[in-house]
Structure formats: C-alpha cells, structure tokens
C-alpha cells in the first residue's frame, strides 16, 4: 500500500516537474504569437475587423479579445490558417464584418478630383500621392484595396476596380477530370 502511494506520488512529482520545466523552457512569447498572427493577416489595414489595422487585430486575437473570423479580405482560407496556428476550431467568417470581395484597387477619377487631400489622410499605407489643390492619384501597386479612401471623398471620385487577370498573374488551373476517377 505504502509502496504504491510512494511510487504514485513520486511519479506525480516527477511529471509535474517536467511539465513545469517545459512550460518555462518552451514558453511562447506573447509578442512572438502576435507576429505569427500578423504574418497570416492580409495587411489590407481596412479595419473591417473593428480594430484600427491588422496588427491591433492580431494583438486582440492573441489576448483573446477578438475572434479569428473577423477579417473579410483574408476570407475562409486565412481563418483556417489562424485556426491551425492557435489550435482552435475553424468557424466561418462573421458576416457582420463584411463579405469577402475579389481583390480590387482604388482608382481616382482625375477629372472630378478637387485635391482636398482627405483621401490622403485616410489611406493606411500612403498609397495616394497628391497635395492640396493638386490632383491626387493612386499608386496601384501599393493599394491594398481597403476602401477607406472612398467614404471621406467629398466628390465621390474614387472607384474600386477589381484586379484583372493578366499574363503575369495568370495561374495554371488544377487539372479537373471526371468526378470519381483517380
């Protein structure tokens, strides 16, 4: 009887020690987790998640203040990646934050633009160039398609144009063959 108790408690102490050591040795830095989450997020900086950018949202996820399904530009694919990273169940995109859309870039109709600079201040990635009373234009390569510039424009001269498939971004499709074979 006594043997059993001694053995069991010895074992418990040993395993507890191992677990305790592991939790210190393999402790994941809070920041490291934020970095990993931030690396998955699409960096659109659109704030549709309810946070003022991708990094604040990543911090919120890491601290458990936000759910993983609040990012429409990332879509289901990113939610899967976040679920894998955090070891939680996948859940479909929360529609209250918006619907996923095809990747678009903003375009300024230069004949209507009055050069008010309001969109410049709204752009989270400084992808609009212009100056007061000067016509503005969007650097298409840098535009993340966040749509934050559309609302402030007093003359509604900004449009979203979906990115067209061209020869340099064209992709080979997965071979599709008769269902059931292979």
């Amino acid at each position: 009887m006594l043997d059993a108790i001694l053995v069991m408690s010895g074992l418990a102490l040993f395993l507890g020690g191992v677990l305790g050591y592991a939790s210190i040795r393999f402790h994941v830095q809070g920041n490291a987790l934020v970095e990993k989450i931030d690396a998955i997020l699409p960096q659109t900086q659109c704030a549709q998640c309810g946070f003022p950018g991708c990094r604040p949202y990543a911090e919120a996820i890491a601290e458990g203040r936000a759910d993983i399904n609040q990012c429409p530009p990332g879509g289901d694919a990113n939610i899967h990646k976040l679920a894998d990273l955090l070891g939680v169940e996948f859940k479909p995109l929360n529609a209250s934050h918006g619907e996923p859309k095809p990747k678009s870039v903003a375009f300024i109709d230069e004949s209507t633009c009055i050069g008010c600079t309001l969109c410049l201040q709204a752009c989270p990635v400084d992808a609009i160039c212009g100056a007061p009373k000067q016509m503005h234009t969007i650097i298409a390569q840098e535009c993340t398609g966040c749509e934050l510039c559309i609302a402030p424009c007093p003359v509604d001269c900004i449009f979203m144009i979906p990115v067209q498939e061209n020869i340099s971004n064209w992709k080979w499709k997965q071979p599709a063959y008769l269902k059931g074979t292979a």
């Binding site: 931030d38 997020l41 699409p42 960096q43 659109t44 900086q45 950018g53 991708c54 990094r55 989270p124 990635v125 400084d126 992808a127 840098e142 993340t144 971004n169 064209w170 992709k171 080979w172």
Partner: peptide, 21 residues
C-alpha cells in the same frame, strides 16, 4: 508552381503594406 508563385506575390504585397502602414 503557379499557386506557390501567387502566394509569394501575395506575401510580398502584404509585407510591403505592413511596412508602409
């Protein structure tokens, strides 16, 4: 291959956006 290239392009764009932000 083209999926991997597309992912790399996206990652590059995201990294650029992060830096600019």
């Amino acid at each position: 291959k083209s999926e991997i290239w597309a992912q790399e392009r996206e990652k590059k764009a995201a990294d650029l956006a992060r830096i600019r932000h």
